[in-house]
């Protein structure tokens, strides 16, 4: 057996040997070439069917990824939209908070307006006159009013007592200094009209001065009362 292998490996030169060697060399050559080819380009060795299948798979994959991208974009747009509307809602809420704070009188404010000073050495001015004065200011669009050291708000009241005038429970004495923020022209016209509140006050013997100012400061603030009785109606309770 090993003799035959040895014989096989012994160099011989014949026509058939050369032909066989040539054929084997051809195989080696082709195999080497084929292996190189495979390494160089794996696609070119695929058959038409396989390429079509590959193309289909890639197409499906592209479709899937496109759908995913679209849905993600929609999510992103949705989230951005949410953020925008939330910011808008917050801005509106802040605006509301500011307006309500001013109306409730819990924050100091400043702006154009008027200052009315009522000198009343004889104590002839009645609470009713001050109420009328405040009402006229409100009618004329005053956004914030202060009477001496008291901030006037929606729940403010003025009453006549034996000792003089009380505003929101605080005893007040002349001179009465009323500051109001609003259009100075509108406010002064409302107060100074013939037969108006200031002429009525002057008729009692008091003197009034009215200044229109570009910047009136109203520093007095109120503390919001605790609600004892009133409750907000929830939307689902309404129906």
């Amino acid at each position: 057996m090993w003799d035959r292998v040895r014989v096989l490996l012994r160099p011989r030169l014949s026509r058939t040997q050369v032909v066989v060697a040539f054929l084997v060399a051809l195989v080696g050559f082709s195999a080497a070439t084929q292996i190189q080819q495979d390494e160089a380009d794996s696609l070119s060795s695929l058959s038409q069917t396989e390429l079509v299948r590959l193309l289909d798979e890639i197409g499906t994959r592209i479709d899937d990824l496109s759908a995913e991208r679209d849905s993600l974009r929609a999510d992103l747009a949705q989230l951005r939209n949410d953020v925008t509307s939330q910011e808008a809602a917050r801005a509106a809420a802040e605006e509301q908070l500011m307006v309500r704070s001013v109306q409730a009188g819990v924050v100091p404010v400043h702006g154009p307006g008027i200052v009315v000073t009522v000198e009343d050495p004889r104590g002839a001015v009645r609470a009713q006159s001050l109420v009328t004065l405040i009402e006229e200011l409100r009618n004329a669009g005053a956004e914030a009013i202060q009477l001496n050291s008291v901030r006037i708000s929606t729940t403010s009241w003025v009453s006549q007592t034996d000792d003089g005038i009380e505003v929101d429970g605080l005893s007040t004495s002349p001179p009465y200094r009323v500051s109001a923020i609003g259009s100075p022209d509108a406010l002064s016209v409302a107060l100074e009209m013939p037969g108006g509140v200031l002429s009525a006050i002057r008729a009692t013997g008091a003197t009034t001065t009215l200044q229109e100012l570009d910047d009136v400061r109203i520093e007095a603030v109120r503390v919001l009362p605790d609600l004892v009785h009133a409750r907000v109606v929830e939307p689902d309770e309404e129906g």
């Binding site: 096989l8 490996l9 012994r10 160099p11 011989r12 030169l13 040997q17 050369v18 066989v20 060697a21 040539f22 054929l23 084997v24 060399a25 051809l26 195989v27 080696g28 050559f29 082709s30 195999a31 080497a32």
Partner: peptide, 12 residues
């Protein structure tokens, strides 16, 4: 022998 040589030559 010649066959082995042929194979090697082909691959190279």
């Amino acid at each position: 022998m010649l066959v082995a040589v042929g194979l090697v030559i082909g691959v190279i």
